[in-house]
Write a protein that binds this DNA or RNA. Structure first.
Lengths: 223, 223
DNA sequence: TAATGAAGATTGCCGCAGCATTACGGAAAG
DNA sequence: CTTTCCGTAATGCTGCGGCAATCTTCATTA
């Protein structure tokens, strides 16, 4: 396992490197973001440990830059700021984990391993469908440049269809995407949502159509 | 997004469900591990939120059981114990993340999203047959890049044949694949389906042919 | 090789399951 | 209080699919 440590406190960095080494981890160390950027492009790190407060900028702003450059490595933020709101900010910007100082090296290792267990698939969470761009993570639908505002249930249906656009989605899959097991459905509620969603998509000229596969499910098709 | 919440504090669970709902997350809730196990097998949850201290056991011991059963869902542990060493223990046993109470719902959402940046399905048993790619799980048949729209019963016949392509499939096996116990058959309905399916496959130039083994069954052969 | 019966193939019929749409009203949101 | 959401049910429509009649193919016999 190979890590890049971006940290300006020399003593902490050195101690971490030694500790990580004992766990069989190879660690590269740099103190500047500019230098870090080149290193990430040249090497394929399993994970990047990123201090937030750095001499040449905020570590947070570095994350989008990396992601845009196609860097798939897991990113774990190290910081003294460990307020919940700060952590939310870091995770939402694309970090994989957030670790507040002080921490045990064992915990860092454990978190790195946990992060590495999940295949990095940060590439393209957004789905293009017709004239829409759908962000399934944040449940956001953009139509051209404007936000398409959809009711919650219709939105869930659309996202479920978009995730498998061009392929059939089982009726049961759609139901599971919209309802939990407590909310039993005794009627054609799903059909209602489909119908209303169809109307909305057509009125908005979204460039997609929902087809039915009788007895099987539905299918989102671009037109 | 669909979660399973395993939590014995009713009020917390209810509050979480409501909060998650506002983020477009469908949440199932149970208070017991035994019940939870069945739910995970029946549903394909994106993530499982697991309380550590539960009436019928320690949540931690539940994790290996799930993994052994082939459950791939992300697991996030919720707990009042937030000591570093405890967290290490949880992560090492196979959890994807660890969240100490109290926490902000926004942080939970953010962590779930971070954990979910992984390929949607780890199991992909698609079958190639002729020019088709058949997804037996989603009952989806792609012919080149377009969906091949088949009626339900013909689709079931095709999937059953494709699962054993190149080998003979007993007539009784096909009947079992298309009809359940309640639907008893009093005619040559299966023959009808075979006939119609053959026509559709030929019209679509699917690159396969269904042969009959007299007195035994049928056989899907690529050509 | 021809006769014969059984198994399979094909096709029209049409009942009804499954789907689409919409109005209504309660509930929830703002 | 107003507006939107959404579950329910009523209504109409479409085509799947079970049935049966008819034709075709195959295996077995003399």
């Amino acid at each position: 396992m190979r890590l890049l440590l971006i940290e300006d406190e020399k003593e902490l960095a050195a101690a971490l490197s030694v500790a990580l080494k004992k766990h069989g981890v190879v660690t590269d160390h740099t103190m500047q973001l500019t230098n870090a950027f080149e290193l990430t492009l040249q090497n394929d790190y399993d994970a990047i440990l990123l201090d937030r407060r750095l001499p040449d900028g905020d570590g947070l702003t570095f994350i989008p830059k990396l992601r845009r450059a196609g860097v798939k490595s897991a990113i774990i933020i190290l910081t003294a700021r460990n307020e919940p709101l700060e952590r939310v900010e870091g995770l939402n910007i694309g970090a994989d984990d957030y670790l507040g100082k002080p921490f045990l090296v064992e915990e860092l290792i454990a978190r790195v391993r946990a992060v590495l267990r999940r295949p990095a698939q940060l590439a393209e969470p957004s789905i293009a469908a017709g004239h829409m761009v759908i962000d399934p993570l944040h449940l956001n639908v953009m139509l051209d440049t404007a936000v398409l505002d959809l009711p919650r249930r219709e939105l869930l249906v659309l996202v479920a269809l978009a995730k498998r656009k061009g392929r059939t989605v089982l009726r049961s899959t759609l139901e599971a995407a919209v309802y939990n097991y407590e909310e039993e459905i005794q009627s054609n509620a799903l059909d209602s949502h489909i119908s209303r969603l169809r109307k909305r998509l057509q009125d908005a000229s979204a460039g997609v159509a929902i087809h039915n596969i009788r007895g099987v499910g539905y299918l989102l098709k671009e037109e």
